[in-house]
Design a protein around this nucleic acid. Structure first.
Lengths: 256, 256
DNA sequence: TATCATTGTGTCGTGATAACGCAATGATAA
DNA sequence: TTATCATTGCGTTATCACGACACAATGATA
């Protein structure tokens, strides 16, 4: 199917597949070279950047829609995602954006479910940077990681959504463990600490951090140390998946 | 307008006024005679109970929709409300429920936006029990308070929503002050403590509770004591509204 | 073999918290 | 009038978690 036809079909018949007036936007965080990154899409023609988003199939749980969107953009499966907020300002009208998009594609339409006002549900995901193969969607020209500290200009209220997502992630850090999807299977304590420091955007005391993390029991220390470092070699750790999952639900019981 | 006509109009033309596929459900908590209560509506014909809910006007912020619904059911204005979760199981189909309702009303329709699948956003509100005049909506036969421990059978997933709302309220209690909308203007420390104990469903140490609450600075002690009690008379307190509002945003900084 | 950055483990003072004591109050009952 | 009693206001103490810091151990590099 040609691109124009695909777009036209989406605009004229999408409402037969998807719920109307509701979208899902994913804030996909990754961690690479001591930097917190976010996956963004560049809108065709407009050039501005956007959060990976999509719609909810008529017979699909919203959580599954979010996972499907994540899978389509990154190729990654089975990730812990959670909704964190619904954005519903009446002026977040996709109408202008979508009409301009259609004009650029060369499709002319008077009516479309895509011109309706949408509310959107924000989902956060934490993924292994190295496993992601960024894939743009039909509306986008590019799909790239951005450092959280150098975000480009974004469409609509997406900058606001991203800001709220980051604040939510920082808050959640005190109650839910983080790292299982963000780090390799084996990792050292300094690596885990760097992850926490990057997300929280502040330095933590090495010794106190170790004590608290270890006390939660979500880690298993291996009898193996890192090789090839010009100083004392740190131990490798793995997550104790059972206790990790438990802590995801019941909380960690401390603050950092 | 006759009831049948009103219903028919809502089912045939409601989608011109409201966003499709999205509803708002309010969990309205009140406090009376040392009991935590929830305001519920009894669905006509079916007899089961439901959370007060409604739809979002095409040009309305979702928060305002929730406040409008609260206002219509209770007559109460200017209440602190917040969304806490979106419920989106594909099987929460209002279709059956709404078709049966229409049949009972005596209206016959094949198609309606009300037969679509809906996702719903849960909002919690805390209101002054004594100021509420419960008013049923068009779909309901009654509007009543229920003790949180004796909830009747509810439609769809509303029991689940209520459960989540209560858990959310209990969690929030550690970060946001509670009481301004739930208690009379003047109240005693034992009354405030009873409120906290009722919501958390556990007893708290009288002396430690007082110390922590006072240390937040959200209270102002009056030079007035309660009269007519057969023991030492407790002081009356008021909320320091400025500090209360501040604590709503920045948190309380302790756990109970 | 000395150096050096970094790690693993421990200590110590502070502040918050839970558990509990006790005198003061004021209506009620003797 | 006076003793009783539940309840309140204010205070004390032991415990524990936390932040800040010390020091020896490690292992590649110079």
């Amino acid at each position: 199917m040609s691109f124009e036809k695909e777009i036209k079909e989406h605009f004229t018949k999408g409402h037969e597949k998807f719920l109307r007036s509701v979208s899902v936007d994913c804030i996909i965080f990754g961690f690479h070279e001591a930097e917190l990154k976010v996956l963004l899409l560049q809108a065709k023609y407009a050039g501005l950047w956007a959060l990976p988003g999509g719609f909810i199939l008529k017979d699909e749980h919203m959580d599954d829609a979010a996972k499907r969107i994540l899978q389509e953009r990154t190729g990654v499966n089975d990730i812990y995602m959670q909704q964190f907020h619904v954005f519903s300002q009446p002026d977040r009208s996709t109408k202008k954006v979508n009409k301009q998009f259609l004009k650029n594609v060369g499709v002319d339409l008077e009516e479309s479910w895509m011109f309706d006002r949408f509310i959107t549900v924000g989902y956060t995901a934490l993924v292994d940077f190295t496993k992601v193969q960024p894939v743009p969607d039909s509306f986008s020209a590019a799909c790239n990681w951005f450092n959280i500290n150098s975000i480009p200009e974004m469409i609509l209220d997406h900058a606001n959504i991203l800001e709220k997502a980051l604040a939510n992630l920082q808050m959640q850090l005190n109650y839910h463990p983080v790292g299982y999807n963000l780090l390799p299977e084996k990792f050292t304590m300094p690596e885990l600490q760097k992850l926490y420091e990057t997300i929280l955007d502040k330095t933590l005391d090495r010794r106190n951090f170790q004590r608290k993390i270890v006390s939660t029991g979500i880690l298993k220390r291996l009898d193996e140390t890192k090789k090839g470092v010009a100083h004392k070699a740190p131990y490798y750790y793995k997550f104790d998946l059972r206790k990790y999952q438990k802590a995801l639900k019941s909380g960690m019981g401390f603050e950092l």
